[in-house]
Design a protein around this nucleic acid. Sequence first.
DNA 1: GAATTCCGTTTCGGAGCCGGATCAGTCTAC
DNA 2: GTAGACTGATCCGGCTCCGAAACGGAATTC
Lengths: 114, 114
Amino acid sequence: MDLKPLDALKLWHDVVLDTVRRDVPDLSARQLAILLTVYLEPPPHTVRGLASKLDVSKPAITRALDTMGQKDLLKRKRDDTDKRNVLVQRTVAGSVYLSELSDTIISKAKDHLA
Amino acid sequence: MDLKPLDALKLWHDVVLDTVRRDVPDLSARQLAILLTVYLEPPPHTVRGLASKLDVSKPAITRALDTMGQKDLLKRKRDDTDKRNVLVQRTVAGSVYLSELSDTIISKAKDHLA
DNA sequence: GAATTCCGTTTCGGAGCCGGATCAGTCTAC
DNA sequence: GTAGACTGATCCGGCTCCGAAACGGAATTC
């Protein structure tokens, strides 16, 4: 793999610019980090676990789940075996959102990594 | 270039997670977009031009320049030929910041695009 | 040289997010 | 069964950012 510094920044620039312009579901870096973690890493995902992994406070995770839940990008589910836990789960809308993000990345990558 | 959707998202995940954890100069997506534009696209860069390119309001650009100026990532310079204009210019600290970002991207890319 | 246009900034009220402390509910040890 | 540990949610004061509108200064038009 041969990715030069300038190419890496240009790729980042193109993708960030694209997401800023069509800011539709405007996610903060933290929210995006949560979304990607839930979709890419093996479950289960708890509030505490996510807070630890991202090194942020628990309320930050709870609030992010609130806002992303409203946008239907994620959903909560109470753990039946231990009702203290909340399991964070995927949704169809979340999958679509990330699918579009990967499309953007791949499209922009083609321009720089040809 | 052969970048699969899952690899693209994993790359994004790793880099975003890295920037969230060491949130030192915590830049919003917009601020990062401004920074990358100024450093990657040919000058001159004006407030109005940046607002148009990112499709955001002028005050948003002004405020972003304020905060990033405090962090010394960018600097303003009055245009001598037309004193209405403000030219946005690079700084050493900004170059260092983006250099570290590209290092992170390249490092994470190696894991997925080997 | 007065009126108009253009530029970046500031003001304004409002919305979102922040972390520490605290809370109610659940599970575990004894 | 009761005391303690643990989970996620909520409260709190504070900070950042938002866009529309209004502003002052500079350039242009006539």
